[in-house]
């Protein structure tokens, strides 16, 4: 790899008419790493991925993949990347093997080399014994595996995965995350987009948090958590919420931020309100919160305390929750 970064993005902009989808982002992905773009829907992740996959031209700026410009050398970039789209982009009336054969030809494989690589990929994705089955009859998990397998056919140096776990069951999701780690162990650089902070946290060597077309924070998981320091996140569910209560909570020493109605708490029911607080020490702050609530005649129906995580970072930086988007 000669120490060359796998991906370099430089002041990348993309406009769709009046919509400024990507607003001058820059980041570098060293070869052999898993790099996650984390952000809510509409943050600009997919647009960025589309530019890196040569599906869209940037309005300005550039991106280099294995040293090749997506604008000037798109064919070289395509040869270096394998793209796993969010959707199951397969031909359902063809068999698994026929799909791999076709996509293999599209990336330039022929003859014996194609047959051999298809056999290898079928083994990797665990579909060797189902290779003649029609994809339409596959389970969701099998389709996902085949969807990933197609991206591996030409042994790309970089795998780009666009939210590959959206809308799938936990078991399939687990399989995909394990596959990503395995591919990375084999030396592939992985650019992974997600709006699940747990995935970014588990997989990534580096994470860039995107919001509204910008990268608002970037670094390792530890780097990012440092942004919120040792803050605890406290999620409360209440039966009512007068304004003056949140004003009073804001005055309590140790409370850094109060966000009303942010992440919907799993236990919240109709008519209940949720409040999220970032606090220095939840043990010290919680009694004061209960005291104020009691004085206001408000009942706290549930409390959740979380250690600092990427969700808290996003909340801290944007005032909004990742999953609210």
């Amino acid at each position: 790899m000669n120490g060359q970064p796998a991906i370099q993005v430089r002041d990348l902009h993309k406009r769709f008419g009046d919509l400024h989808a990507v607003k001058g982002i820059s980041f570098t992905v060293p070869a052999g790493q898993i790099f996650s773009l984390l952000g809510p829907n509409g943050a600009g992740k997919s647009t960025t991925i589309s530019i890196l996959s040569c599906l869209l031209q940037p309005t300005s700026g550039d991106a280099l993949v294995m040293g090749h410009s997506v604008q000037r050398e798109p064919m070289a970039v395509k040869a270096a990347i394998g793209v796993v789209p969010q959707e199951i982009a397969l031909y359902e009336d063809l068999s698994a093997r026929e799909n791999l054969d076709f996509w293999g030809k599209m990336v330039g494989l022929r003859g014996a080399a194609l047959r051999q690589r298809v056999d290898e990929v079928l083994e990797i994705i665990g579909l060797a014994d189902r290779q003649k089955g029609r994809v339409a009859k596959f389970s969701g998990g099998m389709k996902r595996r085949l969807n990933i397998g197609i991206a591996l056919l030409h042994r790309p140096q970089v795998i780009i995965m666009d939210e590959p776990t959206v809308g799938i069951d936990p078991q399939t999701r687990r399989n995909i995350l394990d596959s990503v780690k395995e591919l990375n162990r084999q030396g592939m650089t992985v650019l992974y987009t997600t709006h699940y902070m747990e995935e970014a946290q588990e997989l990534s060597d580096q994470i860039a948090i995107m919001d509204q077309g910008r990268i608002i924070a970037q670094g390792t998981h530890q780097d990012l958590v440092q942004i919120v320091g040792e803050l605890d996140r406290v999620d409360l569910t209440l039966n009512a919420l007068p304004d003056w209560v949140t004003d009073r909570w804001q005055q309590i020493p140790g409370v850094q931020k109060v966000i009303v109605g942010a992440p919907s708490h799993p236990q919240a029911t109709d008519g209940e309100r949720t409040v999220t607080l970032l606090v220095d020490d939840s043990n010290l702050v919680l009694p004061r919160l209960f005291e104020s609530a009691t004085q206001a005649g408000v009942r706290i129906t549930s409390v959740t305390i979380q250690e600092p995580n990427l969700e808290a970072v996003f909340l801290h930086l944007t005032g909004r929750a990742l999953r609210d988007e």
């Binding site: 040569c54 031909y91 359902e92 599209m106």
Partner: peptide
């Protein structure tokens, strides 16, 4: 199915 879009990420 977005297979058409995926084709554009290949050499065709």
């Amino acid at each position: 199915s977005r297979a058409l879009r995926r084709l554009l990420t290949t050499a065709i």
